[in-house]
Nucleic acid binder design. Structure first.
Lengths: 313, 313
DNA sequence: CTGAAAGCGCTAACAA
DNA sequence: TTGTTAGCGCTTTCAG
């Protein structure tokens, strides 16, 4: 079907192809890919789509890839290493031109696959660790540390922490570690903590904050592992008539633009999501075009945005 | 490489394959797909990932596909027909086992491709129109109409509308049409309207609401084309001291669980996103397994959730 | 049952 | 230039 057999002229052939397109004909990329050994796909592996952070990273990737022949294909791991392994296996079996994968923590099998794939691999979001190939991200440990320092500098001393259960989300864990480290340097320890697994983050933030303030009314600062639960907490505290940021201060993480429009701006820290995405895509592109050296690690530096919930030092 | 040549025993071969896996070996699905003429991929084509609604549809699709051999692959169109055509072309060229595509409105070329693909095609989210093959969704026209009726029944009469620019988002347009139709039946006309294109929805809702209330202070109800801008408006009105829902009522659309946790619940309507996703996936599966008849149209019925911003009739 | 061989629909290298 | 042909790495079929 649609072979260019016999002595058909170029114009005729072009006409045929055009007609074919009109009829909804689509070439078979599988055969093409097998023959040419090239697949213009970039595998993008992320933990979740409902976290808002990851769609934004994807946006950054798409934007830079848009003008090229490469296309992102996303796989979701739900923060589960086994699922990451499976998704990675599936995607690599399609022989993509590159891989962008969230995080530096992977199973041995996953690392083996990535190392053996013979394609550029960019690990994103995190730089606290040793990348397989290249990495673009921020140091979450440092982010947590800097927020801890800022909080102490503002004079808060009785600090509570709320976040996701720290087992699977390595970046949240690293922020927490950096945070406690900074507090420890100032002779301060976290006085209360609360974790959640799922549900509407805004509602969870509200519930957890209520529970914590009832349990530990002496707290004067709440550090949240993300902005959504922070916003939930903020709304609850304001309803209760707390003086924010004087009686109690708050901070989150991510600087999600979704929340712009809330009456009070939560203190937060930009996690550079779009830039991470575009930088990662650029690395893949650079590696494909030229013989650029592998193994670069790009650490972006997030800044604290004090908003209205962290009083001036 | 890794040919099963010569007289290697089955056990040896198995051992070799296992070792290969340990080393990160991954089979080539391209060759496999070409040989078997089967690709266990389902193309999912949606307008956006930042809308929250679509990730939820994806969740529904993933959940039902998870236990099968099929895998979703998503493509994003940014609400642009040309981009939809391109994405569709790219995805179809990989010969997926089925297509799930948002909306019933497509370019002629896109329809031709889908019709010619010879695979199950499920159009989702919308049932106001004629599907190419199968469809699962809600009637947005009816949704708008029912909200209009509920608003009139509650005694509101001076109504304003806010939403996205209605050109490309057909479903928002249909809701608007159904809404105005219902109002017209009650002898009421929309008194003011405002549209936005992009930006943080919460912030936009706040801004638009402020602008509209300053321009048309007589309004006693605001209908928003989605919950996020509605929530922004709600926050602004409460800050200004408006009595909601007595002085002014509000309603949005989608019933996003993201907003659970706001002090006041916005009146809204469930858009059945997860169910739409899972039903669509089930249709694909059913068509592949058995010789199920094509062309079914499933209309789900959303219900009004009055929350705290629509007073009782 | 095991093992060899014939393609799948293209691309790329080569021949004319 | 233009047309022909040999694979790409698997699956499937068909002989042994």
């Amino acid at each position: 079907m649609l072979r260019n057999r016999g002595d058909v002229s170029a114009t005729t052939r072009a006409r045929v192809l055009e007609a074919a397109k009109r009829l909804g004909y689509v070439p078979n990329k599988i055969a093409g890919a097998l023959a040419s050994q090239r697949v213009n796909l970039v595998a993008v592996i992320i933990p979740s789509l409902s976290n808002m952070v990851f769609p934004e990273v994807l946006t950054g990737i798409s934007r830079t890839l848009e003008e090229t022949e490469l296309q992102p294909v996303v796989g979701v791991t739900d923060y589960q290493p086994e699922k990451e392994e499976k998704v990675l296996y599936e995607m690599l079996s399609w022989r993509p031109s590159g891989v962008i994968v969230a995080g530096l923590e992977h199973s041995d099998a996953a690392r083996a696959m990535l190392a053996a794939a013979g394609i550029p691999v960019v690990e994103i979001m995190d730089t606290d660790g040793t990348p397989i190939d290249a990495a673009v991200g921020i140091s979450h440990r440092r982010a947590g540390r800097e927020m801890g320092q800022a909080i102490l500098a503002s004079g808060y001393r009785r600090i509570g922490f709320m976040g996701t259960r720290l087992g699977l989300d390595h970046r949240a864990r690293k922020r927490f570690e950096g945070f406690t480290e900074a507090l420890a340097k100032g002779g301060v320890e976290i006085e209360d903590r609360e974790f959640y697994t799922d549900g509407s983050a805004l509602a969870k933030g509200r519930e957890m904050t209520k529970a914590m303030m009832e349990r530990s009314p002496e707290l004067d600062f709440l550090y949240y592992s993300n902005d959504m639960i922070g916003a939930g907490g903020l709304l609850w505290l304001q309803e209760q008539g707390y003086d924010v940021p004087n009686r109690i201060g708050l901070a989150g993480f991510n600087d999600v633009r979704l929340l712009q429009g809330l009456p009070t701006k939560l203190a937060t820290m930009d996690s550079c999501r779009q830039e991470i995405g575009s930088r990662a895509a650029e690395i893949i592109l650079g590696r494909l075009d030229t013989d650029e050296a592998p193994g670069n690690k790009v650490e972006l530096t997030p800044r604290i945005n004090p908003g209205d919930t962290l009083r001036a030092p």
